[in-house]
Design a protein around this nucleic acid. Structure first.
Length: 461
RNA sequence: UCCCCUGUAGCUCAGCUGGUAGAGCGGGUGACUGUUAAUCACUAGGUCGGCAGUUCGAGUCUGUCCGGGGGAGCCA
């Protein structure tokens, strides 16, 4: 393989000729020289190529070196007299591989709005910002695996298609091979015995319950895969298809859960700051001023930890600044979460021990009988980035909770078996990967941190 | 799903109380000490989101549909 532009930019000037390939980002022309910059996506910076027209002047070809064109250049890497780059390529021969006619190519050498770029998601990774997001997302993915693998966690592939009917974490996308124009029915209801799986099936909304199975055999496990929610939500932080990381730890209580969550977020931040410095600099300058400094301080300080009850008490001191009055028993509003992270604590906050009524059936009950061992990690700008809990490991209490919430025990037979055989304390959480990328980059809309966003009424590309 | 804002040139927008359209950038052409958001000059681009209505006259007012954005809820 030919060296990437990232590698070439780190090289010293050399005598022999080399070949560089990439796409033209910008061109500047004057009488005797022509400059154009090449990108191959390997880094934010471009390689400047200079054509000395007195030595080499393929006029017809130069006019086609417009933004977006794919080219191959033979030349010598020389020291650059310019200010912005240590080296540049002195072109000896240029081959146009694929032109990009300037009168129709949508990307121009100017700033574009993210809204516009979303409409051309097939071309937007060629821009500086989206290109940087792409590299940061890749680095963060690697850091996720690295963090868990270094700690002896096993990566579990939980199913994408779920027929277990007990996830209940949100509206689900149904998966079917039935002919929707001619649905088989029995007693007026859909006859799912005729469907592919012989029962109703959906895309997963969480891998947690299956991850718990493996936590009960391999102690520490994690999942990292796509997740689907058919909610009709229309915000800058929701997707119908998103990626979620869900660790699950046996012999672990809520405190251990919080420790892992905090270490995990800090680890990924640190990894990205160290390995994507150039891209982070772009976000720091143009997307969210000061983000690098604020992320650094997050790495160097402890997350604040408060109980739900304490948080509500804190909010009640400032009732005046809210549209919705905080009150014990009600879920925290977005404005409350923002207030806690941005005004009260000025950084990430972990809120624990929520009222059982506003949390899922599987969370471990506290001795007070009113609250559960839940925790949400809230961060500035975004709000909730992690939701987790210690799981109820008592068969009796879990059964009682199912009954209280009118859920059918039969649907949870294998989940209850985990409490019937060798049940031990365990805990875990779910982290929305795109929200983490938003947090890292400062990108305001979640649709711009995933290559192909799926949202209500939108599944283009 | 609810509330608010918005839809004018390829892009980002201006267009006051109704009189059939402008800028910057981008494109093209030319000029130009090696430029780097290059610079300078000239130039071509628009059934003003769709439909219907009020009016002598609608980009501008009304209704409606479609698209986009922000906030809320649901959550990760």
């Amino acid at each position: 393989m030919r060296p990437s532009i990232k590698e070439i930019l780190a090289m010293k000037p050399e005598e022999k000729s080399r070949t560089v390939s990439g796409w033209v980002r910008t061109r500047r022309d004057s009488k005797n020289v022509c400059f154009f910059e090449l990108s191959d996506g390997s880094c934010l910076k471009n390689l400047q190529v200079i054509v000395d027209k007195e030595k080499y002047n393929p006029e017809a070809l130069l006019s086609k070196l417009t933004t977006g064109a794919g080219v191959e250049v033979d030349g010598i890497l020389v020291e650059s007299p310019g200010q912005n780059q240590p080296v540049e390529l002195q072109a000896a021969e240029i081959r146009l591989l694929g032109e990009a006619p300037a009168d129709s190519y949508p990307l121009q050498k100017k700033r574009h709005s993210f809204e516009f770029l979303r409409e051309i998601a097939h071309l937007r990774p060629r821009t500086n910002a989206l290109g940087a997001v792409t590299r940061v997302r890749s680095a963060a993915s690697y850091a996720v695996h690295k963090f868990y693998q270094e700690r002896g966690f096993f990566y579990i592939h939980t199913p994408i298609i779920s027929a277990s009917d007990c996830e209940g974490a949100g509206e689900m996308f149904q998966v079917t091979t039935l002919d929707l124009n001619n649905i088989p029915k029995e007693d007026g209801k859909v006859d799912y015995s005729k469907d592919f799986f012989g029962k109703q099936a959906s895309l997963t909304v969480s891998g947690q319950l299956e991850a718990e199975i493996y936590a009960m055999s391999h102690s520490n496990v994690y999942t990292f895969g796509p997740t689907f929610r058919a909610e009709n939500s229309n915000t800058a932080r929701h997707l119908a298809e998103f990626w979620m990381i869900e660790p699950e730890m046996a012999f672990c209580n809520l405190d251990g859960d919080m420790d892992v969550a905090e270490d995990f977020i800090k680890y990924v931040i640190k990894y990205v700051l160290e390995n994507c410095a150039e891209d982070m600099d772009l976000f720091n300058k143009f997307i969210e001023k000061g983000i690098v400094e604020s992320l650094r301080s997050v790495v160097d300080s402890d997350f604040h930890r408060v109980t739900y009850t304490e948080a509500v008490r804190e909010l009640e001191k400032n009732t005046g600044s809210f549209e919705f009055k905080p009150s014990w028993g009600a879920d925290l509003q977005s404005e409350h979460e923002k207030f806690l992270t941005e005004k009260v604590f000025g950084g990430p906050v972990i809120v624990t021990d929520y009222p059982k009524e506003i949390k899922a059936f599987y969370m471990k009950m506290n001795d007070d009988g009113k609250t559960v061992r839940a925790m949400d990690v809230l961060v500035p700008r975004l709000g909730e980035i992690i939701g987790g809990s210690q799981r109820e490991d008592s068969l009796d209490r879990l059964t009682a909770r199912l009954e209280e919430m009118n859920l059918d025990k039969k649907d949870y037979w294998w989940y209850l078996d985990l409490r019937r055989y060798g049940s031990v304390p365990h805990a875990g959480f779910g982290l929305g990967f795109e929200r983490l990328i938003q947090y890292l980059t400062g990108m305001q809309n979640i649709r711009d941190v995933i290559p192909f966003p799926r949202t209500v009424h939108s599944a283009e590309f």
